[in-house]
Design a protein around this nucleic acid. Structure first.
Length: 477
RNA sequence: CGGGGUGUGGCUCAGUUUGGCUAGAGCACGCGGUUCGGGACCGCGAGGUCGGCGGUUCAAAUCCGCCCGCCCCGACCA
């Protein structure tokens, strides 16, 4: 139960976040450093994320499977860039059943290698393609600095792994799934995201090209909220994933991988939350409506409760909880459910029973502004409309916030300033050195080259050389 | 791994500087009662190897040494 006020966001955003995650009972610190326990309320949110994403994966033709947690060390070593990228953060099992293992086993940091191995066994002919498999699971990356949901040693995610006959098909798949992520983030999470291409230094270890959806958090820092990679034939060649084409010629497949993790819960928290606590988008909220009966004695209670029960039944299509705890006051419950981000609160007291109304409070508008009295008649429709309105207003608010913190600096000096409290959208020549200079000077990195941009010519904001593309520079999580 | 901070009931902390009675408070928890439309109140109660190990001392939460955890900042990252 939440008992105290949060540190305000503008005092210490990071502290606000930590307190919120604990007080809203989304997660807790585990006994092992850097690991978290996802608590039932947080997991319920993740289940809703899973459900809506999984539906989209099925619509785009994917099927689920499960691959093992342990991967032979030698598998990772087969793809040079891959092992170089991941080796510093591997957890490695060297003892099993009390005996030293002949070959160490890596706890998967991602599954390209083991899945590549299996695809090599399964794929023989062009008739076997494409292979469109997704897996829901956990992975381990031995991170040095951790933060609940955003970066923990172990995290939960889905990883899609596909194999295709042609480069074009694989490139299309990469973009299709990035689009699925963007659609999910925007329409389910109300988190506005920008789809774009990662720079060479920011791309996935082993990818030819990485793409991502990038979101702006409430402190203006960027959060990579989902990624989709075109892996070319890198893993196909490392694992000998070959097929016979229609001309009976042996060809390497083209593969992709794409993932979205429990980090997205962090994105939701830091996009929508306020000083009262969490604000959940109605479409993903485990509890969409909390119903609070108000009474001060048995007579009032017996008048109120039947109405509460009736309204609960009328609103059965929504995810609704009746908070009938007797040990805490209504005022406490208001704050408690606001901390947990429930989008709508309905209060039913003696006056409402008398007048045929309910008191309705929407989470996205704090205080009196968000509170109104509405008739009990037609409540289901009212509630449905309100939830849609909250969903839309959260997205609109986050989009306005983001857009008002994206700047187009005139020169490098201005860039170094704007990235302290926002993103810079500037021409970039594509040179690693320019990227590194910005990082060194400001801690801001390139986030992505957005897919949707006109091909225009400009001068690199750093070196002044000719540039064809604009990129977002931002401090990132 | 470098820098900084911190560790005392479940939580937040006081006590440590200057060693000395039975280690305290608030919140949370349990019981009883009064409350209940924006974080209620009263009474009673339970709960502690003072992060760990070692040392100094008649005596250590307090002084000394080593170790460990956690948080923040940096290098690495979904």
């Amino acid at each position: 139960m939440s008992d105290e006020k949060l540190t305000p966001r503008n005092v210490d955003f990071s502290e606000w976040y930590n307190q919120l995650v604990l007080k809203a009972e989304l997660a807790d610190y585990a006994p092992v450093r850097g690991c978290m326990v996802v608590r039932p309320y947080g997991w319920a949110l993740w289940e809703n994320i899973q459900a809506t994403l999984d539906k989209r994966f099925k619509v785009t033709g994917h099927v689920n499977a499960a691959f093992p947690l342990f991967i032979p060390m030698s598998f990772l070593e087969k793809e040079k860039a891959h092992v170089e990228g991941f080796s510093p953060e591997l957890a490695i099992v060297t003892i099993g059943g009390g005996e030293k293992l002949e070959e160490p086993l890596v706890v998967r940091p991602t599954s390209e290698t083991v899945i590549g191995h299996m695809y090599a066994k399964w794929i023989k002919s062009y008739r076997d393609l494409p292979v469109l498999i997704n897996q829901w699971g956990n992975v381990v990356r031995w991170e040095l600095r951790t933060k609940l949901f955003l970066r923990t040693l172990e995290f939960y995610w889905q990883e899609g792994h596909t194999a295709h006959a042609t480069e074009q098909e694989a490139r299309e798949e990469t973009r299709r799934m990035l689009g699925v992520y963007a659609d999910f983030a925007i329409n389910e999470g109300a988190v506005p995201v920008i789809q774009g291409i990662k720079s060479e230094t920011e791309k996935f270890a082993g990818a030819v090209q990485s793409t991502s959806i990038e979101a702006m958090m409430g402190d203006t820092r960027a959060l990579q909220s989902g990624t989709s990679h075109f892996l070319g034939q890198n893993f196909a060649k490392a694992f000998n994933i070959q097929y016979l084409d229609t001309n009976n010629t042996l060809q390497y497949v083209w593969t992709t991988s794409w993932g979205l993790s429990t980090r997205f819960i962090g994105a939701i928290i830091m996009t929508h939350g306020d000083d009262q606590g969490l604000i959940l988008p109605p479409r993903l909220a485990p509890i969409q409506i909390v119903l609070i009966p108000i009474y001060k004695n048995d007579a009032e209670r017996s008048a109120v409760m039947p109405v509460v029960e009736r309204i609960k039944a009328e609103l059965a299509e929504f995810r609704l909880k009746v908070d009938d705890r007797t040990e805490v006051t209504p005022g406490f419950k208001f704050n408690d459910w606001e901390m947990r981000g429930v989008p709508l609160r309905i209060e039913i007291g003696p006056k409402d029973v008398e007048k045929g109304t309910v008191a309705m409070a929407r989470r996205d508008k704090p205080g009196r502004e968000g509170k109104s009295f509405v008739p009990q008649a037609g409540l289901s429709r009212t509630v449905g409309m309100l939830l849609d309105e909250i969903q839309a207003s959260l997205l609109a608010r986050a989009t306005t916030f983001r857009d008002s913190h994206i700047f187009d600096p005139k020169d490098y000096a201005e860039l170094t300033e704007v990235v302290q409290n926002g993103w810079a959208y500037s021409y970039w020549c594509g040179d690693n050195e320019c990227e590194a200079k910005v990082k060194e000077d400001t801690k801001a990195t390139t986030r992505c080259i957005p897919l949707e941009q006109k091909e225009e010519k400009g001068k690199c904001i750093v070196c002044g050389k000719n540039a064809k593309r604009k990129v977002y520079f931002a401090r990132a999580y």
